[in-house]
């Protein structure tokens, strides 16, 4: 104790209070710093290319005239959308032969694989001709107003 010390006088802010504040701050900041990156890993940032379990926007109905088709991404997989008489349908765009990305052929009105000329029925995804051993898997489509959504299975 210094010569000017007055043992019986109470300080304005006690050491214990300072200590509590510091401990509280440390606990809260520690928890925040630990939890934040964990949440970042667990709940990844939303991306237009990544389906996170919900519906994936796939364009506008107006951009897909009847009898036409186009390939759009759904997460890590390309999907082919086709506008048919029965409505808009979607299939996996991965050819079941060797895994090339198929395309819609305006001339024949069929889904065609550019690698080995495998052809698929645009409405059902069934193999019409060529080497593919199986039909294109179906993908669920939801049309809400003018918006097309894909529903990952």
């Amino acid at each position: 104790m210094g010569p000017d010390a007055q043992p019986n006088a109470k300080p304005a802010v006690s050491r214990r209070r300072v200590l509590r504040w510091l401990l509280g701050f440390s606990v809260i900041s520690t928890a925040a710093m630990v939890v934040t990156p964990m949440v970042g890993f667990i709940v990844p940032p939303k991306s237009t290319a990544a389906g996170s379990g919900g519906k994936v926007p796939a364009g506008k109905v107006a951009d897909l005239p009847l009898g036409k088709g186009k390939v759009v991404p759904m997460g890590s997989k390309p999907v082919i959308l086709v506008s048919t008489e029965q409505g808009i349908v979607a299939h996996s765009a991965i050819c079941t032969h060797l895994g090339c990305i198929v395309a819609f052929d305006d001339l024949s009105g069929m889904i065609v694989c550019p690698c080995h000329d495998g052809r698929f029925n645009p409405a059902t995804g069934a193999v019409v001709s060529g080497p593919p051993p199986a039909p294109l898997p179906h993908v669920t489509v939801s049309v809400e107003g003018d918006d097309i959504f894909l529903v990952p299975g």
Binding site: S47, A49, A50, G51, P73, G75, S76, K77, P78, I94, G99, C100, I101
Partner: peptide, 8 residues
């Protein structure tokens, strides 16, 4: 996912 699509 986007890299997978590009790889396809």
């Amino acid at each position: 996912g986007d890299a997978d699509v590009t790889l396809s």
